[in-house]
């Protein structure tokens, strides 16, 4: 086994060894340096859409006054990189971005709270009419793709772009989209053994012992097909088996 190569970078004055291939955001988070983000999720490919994780970089061979804003969730670490996560330029950018998001989703508690942390209590811009809470981060689309259902898509483009499930048949009712949505914009209802999401209602298989929902039959069939495990593997209540199930879920989801 070959040893992982590392590079030395500086984030906010702290010297850090980061493995080659890591992004600036991953390196920072690993060392408990906070960089805010909305569209990043460790389980899926980085996207670079929310622009909150933008940081300032300098390189050792650049002239001292030269710096650049880059997307930390996409920018790979390299030897000698100097990163500032809270420079005036970075903070200014975050404020404008959050101000814009607040105009887009004025009713979202998550965004209101985040904006308030940057001193923005009301947007400078025109609020979107009939606004839902979707910030177009694309996480639901990427998560749904990673699961292999490919039910969710962005449609149209530009300011008109929106997220939808254009093909309801493809949705397996797994809730992965709703649970990863950073602004809780995807609504679902769960009552007894019925679950409704994206205007589609599913029957849910309940745990034979504690009667809590396990999965929808569609979901079970999908994972069974992907993993090669028998369907009943996913419906057993046994605690050990549940752990195994979780492990297979993870494998299927993130492989």
């Amino acid at each position: 086994m070959s040893e992982t190569k590392t590079v030395r970078i500086t984030i906010d004055g702290r010297s850090i060894d980061a493995p080659v291939g890591q992004t600036v955001l991953e390196a920072a988070r690993q060392h408990n340096i906070d960089i805010p983000s909305l569209c990043y999720h460790p389980g899926v490919e980085a996207f670079g859409a929310c622009r909150l994780c933008v940081v300032e970089i300098r390189k050792h061979n650049w002239t001292p006054d030269w710096k650049q804003l880059v997307t930390s969730c996409l920018f790979p670490v390299e030897e000698g990189l100097i990163v500032e996560t809270r420079s005036p330029e970075v903070m200014e950018n975050r404020k404008v971005v959050l101000d814009l998001q607040l105009a887009r989703v004025p009713n979202s508690d998550v965004i209101r709270q985040l904006a308030a942390e940057y001193g923005i209590h009301d947007t400078s811009y025109e609020k979107r009419e009939d606004a839902d809470d979707c910030i177009m981060c694309g996480l639901c689309v990427r998560v749904c793709d990673a699961i292999g259902a490919h039910a969710i898509s962005t449609l149209s483009r530009g300011p008109e772009k929106y997220v939808d499930v254009p093909n309801k048949d493809a949705c397996i009712g797994c809730l992965a989209c709703a649970l990863t949505c950073p602004t809780n914009a995807i609504e679902y209802i769960e009552e007894g053994n019925m679950r409704t999401i994206w205007d589609k209602t599913f029957e849910v298989v309940l745990d034979p012992v504690n009667k809590k929902p396990i999965a929808t039959p569609e979901q079970i069939a999908h994972f069974s097909k992907q993993s090669g495990l028998p369907e009943d593997y996913f419906t057993k209540s046994d605690a050990t088996r549940k752990k195994e199930t979780a492990a297979s879920f993870a494998r299927v989801m993130f492989d």
Partner: peptide, 21 residues
């Protein structure tokens, strides 16, 4: 540009909309 923006990132998608308004 607002018509032609892909709509992926916030400054372009939301920014163009607001500048236009």
């Amino acid at each position: 540009l607002s018509d032609e923006s892909c709509g992926k990132c916030v400054p372009c998608r939301e920014g163009l909309k607001q500048v236009y308004q």
